[in-house]
């Protein structure tokens, strides 16, 4: 029922079935941000997702880093700021900033 533990439950199930899995967690927010600190996104080695770390703005980039973390086992700290609409880069249209920690489940 609880959002965060639903994510962990799915991640645990993936892990137990032998998949490579990573978890991304919102660890700091500044200004308006769509998801509060502690929000989590679980990713398996096929790119399947559970949960969220934003309103969908940064998930694509986070999944790429999660897949890399599953491969090399190293944790990552990602910073996302405001979207530059001209440059089509990844960011938050709402104007907030978030920091996301990505780690492999061992």
């Amino acid at each position: 029922m609880s959002d965060a533990l639903d994510v962990l439950g799915q991640v645990g199930t993936w892990k137990a079935s032998g998949k490579g899995v990573a978890i991304a967690t919102v660890i700091t927010t500044w200004g308006s941000s769509p998801r509060p600190v502690g929000s989590q996104l679980g990713v398996d080695d096929s790119g399947a997702m559970v949960g969220s770390v934003s309103g969908g703005c940064i998930e694509g980039a986070v999944v790429q880093e999660a897949l890399a973390a599953i491969k090399d086992g190293k944790p990552r700290l990602l910073d996302f700021g405001v979207t530059d609409e001209q440059a089509w880069d990844v960011g938050l249209a709402c104007g907030g900033k978030v920091q996301v920690f990505v780690e492999k489940v061992n």
């Binding site: 439950g9 991640v11 892990k15 489940v105 061992n106």
Partner: peptide
Amino acid sequence: MKAETIAALQ
């Protein structure tokens, strides 16, 4: 995160 950590949280 360890798989055991997930089990402990649950």
